[in-house]
Amino acid sequence: MTAQEAESFDGMYAACVRPVLAYCLRRTSEAEAHDATAEVFAVAWRRRDQVPLGDETVPWLIGVAANVLRNQGRSSRRTRNLAGKLGSQPQQVQPGPEAQVVRRVEYAEVQRAISSLKPDYREVIKLVEWDEIPREVVAEMLSVSRAAIDQRLHRAYKQLERKLRHLSPYQVKGGEHDAATAT
């Protein structure tokens, strides 16, 4: 391992650790997510000659993370319980005005609705909307066609429409950034 290789790896790690950790946190507990993330980069360290460059790096690492979580055998149990455990997770949005409280309640309902989807639909919603991975990359990760991803998204949203029909149609501005910056 040369100093240049080490520096290159450290740079890749710094750029990719947060999306990988976020992917794991959305699917398992905090402790297990940190454990899985460490394992992912251990794999990347050992296989550094196979890690793709540029925009392909994060999807590759997330593919490894999916396998790590699967091998750990914890993700399915944790995902079913995740909606209930989210309330005990460190809060990303600080409690504030009443509107913020109402919004967080609705977010929790949406998270529960997503957790209740069948696994194929649940995973594609998470990968595309939460992990923000392009559809064609998701298709490659899951070894299905792009059309299959489109269809799963379509059906997932149809089911979410039915489950969340009771929510008020307020305008949500932005995504996680808006939620993160709200105080």
């Binding site: 650790v17 947060r18 999306p19 950790l21 976020a22 946190l25 959305r26 995740l82 989210l86 997770q89 990303q92 919004r103 609705e106 977010y107 929790a108 949406v110 998270q111 997503i114 919603i125 909307e129 939460w130 949203y157 979410l160 429409e161 969340l164 029909r165 929510l167 008020s168 149609p169 307020y170 305008q171 949500v172 501005k173 932005g174 995504g175 996680e176 950034h177 808006d178 939620a179 993160a180």
Partner: peptide
């Protein structure tokens, strides 16, 4: 709720804010 509103809601309901991790 319209489809775009639902999609915005799903995105906003992301339980993990990536850029706030490992601060």
């Amino acid at each position: 709720m319209t489809q775009p509103q639902l999609r915005d809601l799903v995105k906003a309901s992301n339980p993990v804010v990536t850029h706030q991790l490992l601060s």
